[in-house]
Simulated assay, not measured.
Amino acid sequence: MLKFIPRHEFETLANQHHQGRKLRKMSRWSQFVALGLGQLSGRSSLRDIVTNVSAQASKLYHLGASTVSRSSLARVNEQQPHTLYEALFGKLLARCQGLAPKHGFRFKNKLYSLDASTIDLCLDVFPWATFRSTKGAIKLHVGLDHSGYLPTFMTVTDGKAHDVTVGRTLKLPKQSIVVFDRGYTDCKWYNLLDNNDIFFVTRQKSNATFDVIERRSVTKKSGLTSDQTIKIKGSKAADCPIALRRIGFRDPGTGKHYVFLTNNFKLAASTIANIYKSRWQIELFFKWIKQNLKIKTFLGTSKNAVLTQVWIAVCMYLLLAYIKFCNKLNSSLQQILRLLQLNLFERRGLVDLLRGDPPKPLDPQLQTQLQFT
């Protein structure tokens, strides 16, 4: 698996993101191997990771890594910048994007879902993670590319950061479509997205005031209830002077009624509704990384140690996605992870393992060549 990360590229990043004196007892690569092993195998503590790495000491040489002590690993997690793994995330993302399958819609525009997820922390243990008077938290802000469901945009903030504040900082490509929930409601941002030639799809708040400029007929059999052109009125009118499209949709399964807002007037109303429905993929992304990777319990208490663990976790997610895309596997990421957990140090081909092929027997001639006469 580690062959997918060029060692020379990693060392270049490690030198760029180094702080203080040269490391003597361990390297950043050994840190990455140890914490990556902890993510993939579900280890829950530094002692647990160190014990499992030591158990594989004879196999670490071929990985270019070495055994680590608990104190050394804790010190490097706390002192060496987490930005190394943020930069590695960018490298892995670029590779994944070149192999990722397209989204399932007919239009060619890039499609992104935008959302944030809060990870609760104990304020007494993590005093830097201020959220509320008695609670601590950090927040993961993610822009999920629907081509391969990759976290193309990601940042980590304290729990107080508002979703739309981070959303405004994203630099989305022109003609792309971004979908988000009502937590990102901001008329000024709507206008800014439209000025930057970016389409958005969101839900309208129930207390919004507007004037209907035009009504279009809809096919009610498909669940659509309305398709209108509106303009915001009231105190927010000056913030969003552009015309918006308002689409009503009733879910045939649950009977719940939804009202969507968008600045895209070309796509069919049913497509707009399906675009918002696809936003559920980012909820599944957060659910997956919280259930399958270690980002809810942390190995260190400093901010740098926490961010190091989070960025290595998403690097492991991209590594699994890259393996899936490279080999065109039909298995889910969870199935791939579960299979790898029991075979991380097995000496067999990765592709054969993931495709369920039986292990190839060793050539007896190669064995006899290693024997001394």
Rank of each mutant, 00 (worst) to 15 (best):
M1G: 11
F4N: 14
P6Y: 01
R7F: 10
F10M: 00
A14P: 01
H17T: 05
K22R: 11
L23P: 06
M26K: 05
V33Q: 01
V33W: 04
A34M: 01
L37A: 05
L40E: 03
D48F: 09
S58L: 14
H62A: 12
S69Y: 09
P81I: 04
L88D: 02
L93R: 10
Y112A: 04
S117K: 11
I119F: 05
C122V: 14
D124T: 15
D124F: 15
R132E: 13
H141L: 05
T155K: 06
T155R: 13
V166N: 02
V166L: 09
K171Y: 04
Q175K: 15
D197E: 12
E214V: 08
R216I: 03
V218F: 10
L224D: 01
Q228L: 14
K231I: 13
I232S: 06
K236H: 08
G255C: 03
K256I: 12
L267W: 07
A269P: 07
I272M: 08
W280E: 06
E283W: 00
L284M: 09
F285M: 07
K290W: 00
N304I: 07
L318Y: 04
N327F: 13
K328W: 10
Q334N: 08
L342N: 12
L354H: 01
G356N: 10
D363I: 02
